[in-house]
């Protein structure tokens, strides 16, 4: 950064993209976008455009790695070469490998892997266009893809990044704030179980700021959860009224 540090929040408390400290970027979610996949979702969040797709439970390859008592959860976070300002080499980078791991570990607490011994569940997160918070957007989309695939889940997983910009704790960093701000904390949790499943951070936070960040992340995440719910319900029920009045004989039996 050769330029002098610019202000990211103006005197009226407005951020570079016009938001206030506690506002989310525009968010759009669609479930069921990859025809061949067992489950999938597209999330557009700020400039992020991310597809998550799930295959599974399926046969484990290589066979000798299969687990006798549960499914093997695999996750691949990958960025398209054109997803960032400067073309990215398509080979997986160390950053992508680390993010793949933390995404896997963010999703795992929500899954009943023990219901699928000897199988594999594969989650693919493909970043078509990247903006701040791509990993939490990836987790949010992946949880939907897993639910769409019909894997037994304790809860969805949802996330939102929080950061420190011009000395203030703010919600949902955009790309500029991510790069030029003084702290970033991607954060995901299970909304009903109230359990944190991913937390990374950099920058300096006082204990008070850290507390604020966690609270803000949760509040922001709950808004994202509403969008997540609506997308999933739309995919399966598409406005059809709940049919409590239906005679029992009309319903399926297991």
């Amino acid at each position: 950064m050769t330029e002098e540090k610019r202000r990211l929040i103006d005197e009226n408390g407005i951020r570079t993209d016009g938001r206030r400290w506690d506002e989310l970027r525009p968010l759009k979610i669609e479930v069921g976008v990859v025809k061949n996949a067992d489950g999938s979702a597209l999330i557009e969040w700020g400039k992020n455009k991310i597809i998550a797709a799930v295959y599974g439970p399926k046969e484990m390859h290589p066979k000798h790695l299969e687990l006798a008592d549960r499914a093997f959860l695999k996750c691949r976070y990958h960025m398209a070469p054109f997803s960032v300002e400067e073309r990215k080499n398509p080979a997986p980078s160390r950053r992508e490998i680390e993010i793949s791991k933390v995404i896997r570990e963010a999703l795992q607490p929500a899954l009943f892997l023990e219901d699928y011994p000897r199988t594999a569940i594969q989650v693919y997160v493909e970043v078509l266009q990247s903006d701040g918070g791509s990993r939490v957007a990836g987790v949010t989309a992946s949880a939907l893809a897993l639910a769409d695939a019909g894997i037994n889940m304790r809860d969805l997983v949802v996330g939102c990044a929080v950061g420190k910009v011009d000395g203030k704790v703010v919600l949902d960093l955009n790309d500029i704030e991510d790069k030029e701000g003084s702290g970033d904390m991607p954060f995901t949790f299970m909304p009903n179980l109230n359990q944190v499943t991913l937390l990374q951070m950099d920058g300096l936070f006082t204990l008070d700021e850290f507390k604020q960040a966690v609270e803000l992340g949760k509040a922001g995440g709950m808004k994202v959860y509403q969008a997540q719910r609506e997308a999933l319900l739309k995919r399966y029920f598409d406005g059809a009224a709940p049919d409590s009045s239906a005679p029992a004989a009309e319903m399926m039996e297991a």
Binding site: D38, G39, G56, P57, K58, F112, A147, D148, A149, G150, I151, N152, M153, R154, N192, L232, Y236, M251, M252, A254
Partner: peptide, 24 residues
């Protein structure tokens, strides 16, 4: 009583179940 899948939950006198709408 918590649902583990996307589907239709049925609450009857004797129990609760979910009829899933997707899955392998």
């Amino acid at each position: 009583m918590v649902a583990l899948r996307v589907g239709l939950a049925e609450v009857a006198q004797n129990g609760v179940k979910v009829i899933p709408l997707s899955g392998a």
